[in-house]
Measured scan of single mutants.
Amino acid sequence: TEYKLVVVGAGGVGKSALTIQLIQNHFVDEYDPTIEDSYRKQVVIDGETCLLDILDTAGQEEYSAMRDQYMRTGEGFLCVFAINNTKSFEDIHQYREQIKRVKDSDDVPMVLVGNKCDLAARTVESRQAQDLARSYGIPYIETSAKTRQGVEDAFYTLVREIRQH
């Protein structure tokens, strides 16, 4: 089974770092803004072998026109913010609204991801993020692309959301 996953969120929150940590098991430290990259990885989730087709997208506003296209083809979405960047957390709402509009559905598989949880300088409390996820009816997972904490959990949870859909 193949799953088309799309990673969305503001610029600099760590979308590529999360994806590369999942696929290649290493942490990319330097920031190089993405336009669009796709990665494929075969994994076993709950005993089922599946192929993850992951689209890593641009957070930069100037590429926002490309969003409709990949939102149409994606089956599930990782909505990523950084726990030390309140603005990126506030941006999640717009991504969710755009996904709902493009998919013409209120019920699209999504996982809210709070990345950079290895950093002490948190400005978005776990509780705020949990409340937001609960209001959307989606899971919330904290990750660190640096330490790998929660990385597999985030992507695998999204696959489970798609399966249950």
Rank of each mutant, 00 (worst) to 15 (best):
T1F: 05
E2T: 04
Y3A: 06
Y3P: 06
Y3L: 08
K4L: 06
L5K: 04
V6H: 02
V6E: 04
V7F: 01
V7E: 06
V7K: 06
V8Y: 03
G9N: 00
G11I: 15
G11R: 14
V13T: 13
V13Q: 07
K15P: 02
K15Q: 06
K15V: 00
S16W: 01
S16K: 03
S16M: 05
A17N: 02
A17D: 01
A17L: 02
L18T: 04
L18E: 05
T19W: 03
T19S: 13
T19N: 12
I20P: 01
Q21N: 15
I23H: 10
N25V: 07
H26G: 13
H26Q: 09
H26R: 05
F27A: 04
F27K: 03
F27E: 06
D29Q: 13
E30F: 12
D32I: 04
D32N: 04
D32Q: 07
D32E: 15
P33A: 12
T34N: 03
I35V: 08
I35C: 08
I35M: 06
E36K: 02
D37C: 04
D37G: 03
D37V: 02
D37N: 02
Y39N: 03
Y39P: 00
R40N: 04
R40A: 07
K41W: 03
V43K: 08
V43L: 09
V43G: 07
V44P: 11
V44I: 09
I45F: 12
I45Y: 07
D46F: 10
G47N: 08
E48K: 08
E48Y: 15
T49M: 10
T49W: 06
C50M: 12
L51T: 14
L51G: 09
L51R: 05
L52I: 13
L52T: 09
I54Q: 01
T57N: 08
A58C: 02
G59C: 03
E61K: 11
E61F: 15
E62S: 07
E62P: 03
E62H: 15
Y63I: 09
Y63T: 13
Y63L: 12
S64H: 14
A65Q: 02
A65C: 11
A65M: 06
M66Q: 04
R67P: 15
D68F: 09
D68E: 12
D68L: 03
Q69G: 09
Q69T: 07
Y70R: 02
R72Y: 01
R72V: 03
T73D: 12
T73G: 12
G74S: 04
G74D: 02
E75S: 11
E75T: 12
G76R: 02
F77Y: 14
L78Q: 08
L78E: 00
L78A: 05
C79N: 06
C79V: 15
V80D: 00
A82P: 00
I83N: 05
N84D: 15
N84P: 08
N84W: 03
N84K: 05
N85F: 06
N85E: 13
K87S: 11
S88P: 06
S88H: 06
F89C: 02
F89N: 05
F89W: 13
E90K: 12
E90Y: 07
E90V: 12
Q94C: 14
Y95D: 03
Y95A: 12
R96D: 08
E97A: 12
E97F: 06
E97I: 04
K100Y: 04
R101H: 00
R101T: 04
D104Y: 00
D104E: 14
S105P: 06
D106I: 12
D106V: 07
D106E: 10
D107T: 14
D107A: 08
D107F: 12
M110G: 00
V111H: 00
V111I: 04
L112A: 06
L112T: 01
G114L: 05
G114C: 10
G114Q: 03
N115S: 12
K116R: 12
C117R: 06
D118W: 01
L119F: 08
A120G: 13
A120W: 08
R122C: 13
T123L: 06
V124E: 09
E125W: 07
R127S: 11
R127Y: 04
R127E: 06
Q128H: 08
Q128A: 10
A129R: 02
Q130I: 14
Q130M: 13
D131A: 13
L132F: 09
A133C: 02
R134E: 05
R134V: 10
R134Y: 13
S135D: 05
Y136F: 11
Y136Q: 10
Y136S: 03
Y136R: 06
Y136T: 05
G137C: 01
G137W: 00
I138Y: 01
P139T: 09
Y140L: 09
I141Y: 07
I141K: 06
E142Q: 12
E142H: 05
T143I: 12
T143D: 00
A145F: 01
K146D: 14
K146Y: 07
K146P: 12
K146L: 14
T147K: 07
R148G: 11
R148C: 11
G150L: 09
G150A: 11
E152M: 10
D153N: 08
A154Y: 03
A154N: 01
A154G: 05
A154D: 01
F155D: 00
F155E: 02
Y156P: 03
T157E: 07
L158S: 01
L158A: 05
R160A: 14
E161I: 13
E161V: 08
E161F: 09
I162G: 02
R163L: 13
R163E: 12
Q164W: 04
Q164T: 08
Q164K: 11
H165L: 14
